[in-house]
């Protein structure tokens, strides 16, 4: 039992012809551009001009490895306990730092927050020593503290930086 399907269906009857015409026009323009040898001068810089405001930055291999290690988190809280025993009081609790590391990496930049995410802790590595999942928590804290400083500076990907 077919009922009224609305304008989309009506239009789609003519869709094939419109699609073809669009494809041909675009294809021709594309061909001309290729023949002229035109290419966007710096596509990666363009990418960051497009998406820098959304918090995107060039990926950092060290950070990526830290995130991979941090994926093993069991949310057990032993790092927080050990940090407390060592007398630490970092701005971001070690457990929260590990859980949040990937999200903070982009949210902070996207929103341009000026509050520090994490203070560089004493780096006593008590948290890392106690972690059952073997996560280098002290390095995660340090990476987030660095991120906070980077967030303060706007990202402009210059060709020199990328090449």
């Amino acid at each position: 039992m077919r009922g009224y399907r609305g304008f989309l269906r009506e239009l789609s009857r003519t869709g094939g012809a419109r699609a073809l015409s669009l494809q041909l026009r675009t294809g021709a323009a594309h061909l001309l551009r290729s023949l002229r040898g035109a290419r966007a001068p710096d596509p990666v810089a363009l990418f960051f001009r497009n998406y820098g405001a959304d918090g995107f930055r060039l990926p950092d291999t060290e950070r990526a490895q830290l995130q991979l290690a941090a994926e093993a988190c069991l949310v057990c809280g032993l790092c927080s306990a050990e940090c407390a025993r060592a007398g630490g009081a970092p701005l971001l609790d070690p457990r929260d730092a590990v859980i949040a590391a990937a999200r903070l990496e982009i949210d902070w930049l996207r929103l341009g927050l000026s509050e520090p995410i994490a203070t560089p802790c004493a780096a006593c590595r008590a948290c890392t020593a106690v972690c059952p999942a073997g996560i280098p928590i002290d390095r995660v804290q340090e990476s987030l503290a660095r991120l906070g400083r980077e967030a303060a500076a706007p990202q402009v990907a210059t060709p020199a930086e990328i090449r």
């Binding site: 989309l8 789609s12 869709g15 094939g16 669009l22």
Partner: peptide
């Protein structure tokens, strides 16, 4: 949908 129904894409 660009291949067949660009109106779908538009909307």
């Amino acid at each position: 949908y660009l291949q067949k129904d660009p109106e779908v894409t538009l909307h």
